Deep mutational scan, measured.
Amino acid sequence: NKFNKELQWATWEILNLPNLNEEQVKAFIDSLRDDPSQSANLLAEAKKLNDAQA
């Protein structure tokens, strides 16, 4: 389904953001699992944090 694909994509993207530490990655992945419908928003937040920590 749509959420499953978005969840998989967001998870992959977050795992590959180079500037997030392990705790941050875990927190984003946990949030994705808690509410897959928020995957686009969570991915945007993760990318923003990744850029800020570059």
Rank of each mutant, 00 (worst) to 15 (best):
N1P: 02
N1W: 00
N1L: 03
N1R: 00
K2V: 15
K2S: 15
K2P: 15
K2W: 14
K2A: 15
F3N: 08
F3Q: 04
F3S: 03
F3R: 00
N4T: 03
N4Q: 05
N4K: 03
N4M: 06
N4F: 07
N4S: 03
K5P: 15
K5F: 05
K5R: 03
K5G: 11
K5M: 06
E6L: 07
L7W: 08
L7T: 07
L7R: 02
L7M: 09
L7N: 04
Q8K: 10
Q8I: 08
Q8G: 04
W9I: 12
W9A: 14
W9V: 10
A10K: 03
A10E: 02
A10G: 03
A10D: 03
T11D: 03
T11P: 02
T11N: 05
T11S: 07
T11K: 08
W12F: 14
W12Q: 15
W12S: 15
W12P: 02
W12N: 12
W12K: 09
W12G: 12
E13T: 10
E13D: 04
E13S: 08
I14L: 13
I14G: 01
I14D: 02
L15V: 09
L15D: 04
L15K: 11
L15W: 07
L15I: 09
L15S: 10
L15P: 02
L15N: 07
L15F: 06
L15Y: 11
N16F: 05
N16T: 09
L17K: 01
L17M: 07
L17E: 01
L17I: 01
L17H: 04
L17Q: 04
L17F: 07
P18M: 08
P18Q: 14
P18Y: 05
P18S: 08
N19M: 10
N19T: 06
N19K: 04
N19G: 06
L20T: 00
L20Y: 00
L20Q: 00
L20A: 00
N21L: 09
N21R: 13
N21S: 02
N21T: 12
E23G: 12
E23I: 11
E23A: 13
E23M: 11
E23H: 12
E23F: 12
Q24E: 04
Q24I: 03
Q24F: 02
Q24P: 00
V25W: 03
V25D: 00
V25Y: 06
V25T: 12
V25K: 14
K26W: 07
K26T: 07
K26H: 08
K26N: 06
A27M: 12
A27G: 12
F28R: 00
F28I: 05
F28Y: 05
F28Q: 00
F28W: 03
F28N: 00
F28M: 05
F28V: 03
I29P: 00
I29H: 03
I29Y: 03
I29R: 04
D30E: 14
D30T: 14
D30A: 13
D30Y: 13
D30Q: 14
D30V: 10
D30I: 09
S31K: 14
S31Y: 13
S31N: 13
S31L: 14
S31V: 09
L32W: 02
L32M: 14
R33H: 15
R33M: 14
R33S: 09
R33Y: 15
D34I: 12
D34G: 14
D34V: 13
D35E: 08
P36Q: 04
P36V: 04
P36Y: 04
P36M: 10
P36W: 07
P36H: 05
S37T: 04
S37R: 05
S37P: 04
S37N: 08
S37M: 09
Q38N: 13
Q38K: 14
Q38F: 06
Q38P: 01
Q38W: 05
Q38I: 11
S39W: 15
S39Y: 15
S39E: 03
S39T: 09
A40D: 08
A40M: 14
A40H: 09
A40K: 12
N41P: 06
N41I: 09
N41H: 09
N41R: 04
N41Q: 11
N41S: 08
N41G: 03
N41D: 09
N41M: 08
L42N: 02
L42Q: 06
L42R: 06
L42W: 08
L42E: 01
L42D: 01
L43W: 05
L43A: 05
L43P: 00
L43I: 09
L43D: 00
L43V: 15
A44I: 12
A44Y: 08
A44T: 12
A44Q: 11
A44M: 11
A44H: 12
A44L: 15
E45F: 07
E45L: 11
E45D: 10
E45K: 07
A46G: 01
K47L: 10
K47Y: 13
K47P: 00
K47A: 03
K48S: 11
L49H: 05
L49E: 05
L49G: 01
L49I: 09
L49N: 03
L49F: 06
L49R: 05
L49D: 02
L49Y: 07
L49M: 09
N50L: 01
N50D: 10
N50V: 01
N50F: 01
N50T: 01
N50H: 02
D51W: 09
D51I: 05
D51A: 12
D51N: 10
A52D: 11
A52E: 12
A52N: 12
A52Y: 15
Q53V: 11
Q53L: 13
Q53T: 06
Q53I: 13
A54Q: 14
A54V: 10
A54F: 08
